[in-house]
């Protein structure tokens, strides 16, 4: 299924709010937990208690420091999982058809029983969203929790990705970008949702909301309206107090 669908009925994806992500890694671990137990092979760990532990994760939280022209440096926590690109290069390079983009909802998936573990799709992904599981020998990636979002064994309200459900800060949002009125479309419009590496031409579905301007509280001087002294001395202050109390 290496060809990409011309269009998809829905365009499901995530909005990730860089203004509120506190970098807690909750999404990382709930993703690991859900996907270890569910879709396909478990996400394995090598040398789990050893000197060089390493494992498969479908979602990882980076952090970056940004130094503005003036003012203090900022730190931004940056979760990253598959962006379910419209022009997914990871799909078209796949020699076996294991990688595909679903025509119903645009979710990019790996059919693990077809995957030969050649790694090429991971090479093609600019975002590092695919990891070859060392135990199973197949490519793993974010499934957008395809086994949750339609799952009739889950209560309706739980039919959302594990990472979205768990995010304590509410920095992750899930929905259909084909619906201009969906929560994700609105958020992305209002807050300037952006693409990562647009120059790669992948047309990512997931959008990132940029952090709001920081350290914008204007520094003010002695006679700021809210701090105009009522009196300079304790005595003067108590005089003011007397007068003010009269009025209360």
């Amino acid at each position: 299924m290496t060809s990409l669908p011309n269009s998809t009925q829905k365009k499901l994806g995530l909005v990730i709010d860089l203004d509120t992500c506190v970098g807690c890694h909750a999404c990382v671990i709930s993703c690991k937990g859900w996907n270890t137990e569910n879709y396909g092979a478990p996400l394995s760990d090598q040398d789990a208690y050893g000197s060089d532990p390493s494992g498969t994760f479908l979602n990882r939280v980076h952090s970056f420091e940004v130094q503005p022209q003036t003012g203090a440096a900022q730190l931004i926590h940056f979760p990253k999982s598959c962006l379910h690109c419209d022009d997914a290069p990871c799909v078209t390079v796949c020699p076996t058809g294991a990688s595909y983009k679903r025509s119903e909802d645009g979710i990019v998936l790996v059919n693990e029983s077809d995957c030969i573990g050649c790694g090429l799709c991971a090479w093609a992904c600019p975002y590092g969203a695919r990891e070859l599981d060392q135990a199973a020998g197949v490519m793993k990636k974010c499934t957008l929790c395809v086994d949750r979002i339609y799952n009739e064994n889950l209560p309706e309200e739980d039919r959302e990705p594990a990472c979205v459900r768990t995010c304590p800060a509410g920095a992750r949002h899930f929905g259909d970008f084909n619906d201009p009125n969906s929560h994700v479309s609105t958020l992305s419009r209002d807050r300037g949702g952006m693409d990562l590496m647009p120059e790669q031409g992948t047309a990512p579905v997931n959008k990132y909301l940029p952090p709001r301007p920081k350290d914008a509280l204007p520094e003010i001087d002695v006679l700021a309206p809210f701090l105009t002294p009522v009196a300079e001395t304790p005595k003067g202050f108590l005089g003011w107090l007397d007068k003010t109390l009269e009025k209360l």
């Binding site: 671990i29 594990a162 768990t166």
Partner: peptide
């Protein structure tokens, strides 16, 4: 996973909890 009805976390869970 987190318990949605719970007064403390209302369904969310941190990394430690999920682990």
């Amino acid at each position: 996973e987190g318990n949605r009805d719970h007064p403390v976390n209302k369904g969310v869970l941190c990394a430690k909890g999920s682990a």
